[in-house]
Design a protein around this nucleic acid. Structure first.
Lengths: 345, 345
DNA sequence: CTGTTAGCGCCTTCAA
DNA sequence: TTGAAGGCGCTAACAG
């Protein structure tokens, strides 16, 4: 049997409105009454029924994270888990709960989100930019539901989003290699339909061109191929005439495949090929050699997204606010994969 | 403005009870009425208000996953994400939503879970065995809330749990090494307060003793030390008099540290030291050499836990049912880290 | 300052 | 087979 306000009220000899006032911290309650009611609440172990509260207030204090469908596994588990951590931490700080959801296809995604939002299960959504048209975003925009995009989308503007400046990040990473004397630099790309892949490629290319270096299409490898058969791919790559002396890799996991392949082929990192990658997951430190990586602040990304969404939920008016795109700073973490080994170890 | 049953009812010229019956598939509705109401519902895009439904039915169709506090990062992100996938997939199949929660300390954990359960936000909880006394479990047992434990706990019995037989798994892994001719086998352990670590150690030890092999305390390393300074730890290990020729490692991530350390020290895997590990996350394939690993079916673990919890929520009577411990089969995936390299590659 | 009243949107009797 | 009425636990408006 649940302890309700009514019961607390009866036991305390007051009306249930008074109990409600005490619970919600309403000012118009005599100090004494408040204390008495609170004591009784403690005794009876009263816990508010959030469902009933939601029903009348139309606020659920929860948000959902729409995980992308598993069509590309390149940026996967480590990345999302860290993101969820960031989101959850910030959400909990504001008393929000996190709901995880996903759909097998776009239709299912829309249905899920619709059910959750219209069914008043959640107040808003955090989702990931796919780069292409997105039925979910359309749905959210049309119905005016609060949502935040992690990543960037060329197709939509004026929507709340949190992102890394991937072009600059790639530019910086490439410049790091250039500043270490590399003239021929390759690139391992991610799925070409993802904005994140395109942006990183763009930044890489810009750095190459800005520095007047050579630009060879053969120096650009496909990350998915590396994951599947890193050995062959790297063998091909390393046997190119005038092959690169350094390579920029779109993701830590993929960099592992690259280095693994190189090791098998008896090439040394960074001596034969310097490697810089993105995301700076814990893997980079465990690799041999440890991998230089752009830390894009995954946790921050999630934390901020959560913050922005909650703000948008709590102040719905600000649709046309000035800043709707939030950029998380990145930072290059230099490790052995891009600099000559230190003496001693 | 939300579309309610009332509005649909008015528009369809029936009572809202009838609409309710149609929605819930109640048999006592004339075929014709049903069709008419359904048509109107579609037209008006009626979506049931789950909150209101919950309020009266006292069923939320959602569960929460209580993520462990981040005091040990040994079995971390990759593991949990995969687990969540399994849980979410099964849950969605049954129309359940997943709530992610965590707490900074045990008190917070209890509070969160209590709020969620008593506030009728979720119907049940999936949590992870910590091995020691657990205030959350106490809370759940005392209040009779449905919950499932992933892992095993010596302290509690008769509670629903889903687990790997880690003793057997470790036994099998060790026997694999023994069958390949290894006589001196080391072990890298996880946090000693976790049941999972103890069980794996137990299985390893049993295999060693059953086969009449040597048992040296120095051959047992601490996983956390490896993560922090794998190089030194492995250097020490490899310089032991009559050092092991093989080693069993409690987790993939840690095995990475081990192999990384060995590489730096110019030792070869598996020639100088064969390695077998647990969990079979995608990392094992990306390593050089690829690591032999016990696949404990993380996804299955989550999937089953979800299934068991839902069953327990929907049939609350079965507290004293016969099977309350579900074991997921494990399987050794043999890769190059434990067998001589294949010719040709 | 406090109590009464009237819903939130839905489901479940009970009567017709 | 259908409708009316009442209530789930809470909040908000209006009186006192």
């Amino acid at each position: 049997m649940q302890v309700t306000m009514k019961k607390v009220a009866r036991r305390a000899g007051v009306s249930s409105s008074t109990v409600s006032r005490v619970v919600s911290g309403h000012p118009n309650v005599r100090e004494e009454t408040s204390r008495k009611v609170k004591k009784i609440m403690d005794e009876m172990k009263y816990t508010p029924n959030m469902i009933a509260k939601s029903l009348v207030s139309k606020i659920t204090s929860s948000m959902c994270i729409l995980l992308p469908m598993q069509d590309e596994k390149l940026f996967s588990n480590l990345f999302y888990m860290e993101l969820i951590r960031g989101i959850a931490t910030q959400a909990n700080l504001s008393g929000f709960d996190i709901l995880i959801s996903s759909g097998a296809n776009e239709n299912e995604e829309v249905e899920t989100v619709s059910r959750l939002l219209k069914g008043r299960h959640v107040d808003g959504v955090i989702l990931f930019s796919s780069g292409k048209e997105d039925a979910v975003i359309d749905f959210l925009k049309i119905n005016g539901y609060p949502f935040v995009l992690i990543g960037r989308s060329d197709k939509y503007n004026g929507i709340l989003s949190v992102d890394t400046n991937n072009v600059t990040a790639a530019y910086d990473a490439t410049n790091h290699l250039i500043s270490r004397g590399h003239k021929r630099i390759g690139f391992v790309s991610g799925p070409s339909n993802l904005t994140i892949s395109c942006d990183r490629l763009k930044g890489y290319r810009k750095a190459i061109l800005d520095n007047g270096l050579e630009w060879h299409p053969e120096w650009i490898l496909d990350g998915e191929v590396i994951q599947d058969r890193g050995y062959q791919a790297m063998s091909f790559f390393m046997n190119l005439p005038e092959r690169p002396t350094a390579i920029l890799v779109v993701d830590d996991m993929v960099a592992f495949g690259v280095i693994s392949g190189l090791n098998k082929l008896k090439y040394k990192v960074p001596d034969d090929l310097a490697v810089v990658t993105f995301n700076n997951t814990p893997l980079t430190e465990l690799s041999n050699p440890p991998i230089s990586s752009i830390d894009i602040g995954i946790y921050q990304l999630g934390f901020t997204a959560s913050q922005v969404l909650i703000k948008s939920i709590q102040h719905p008016g600000n649709d046309t606010q000035h800043t709707n795109r939030f950029i998380i700073e990145h930072q290059l973490i230099v490790r052995e994969s891009s600099i000559p080994k230190l003496l001693g170890v």
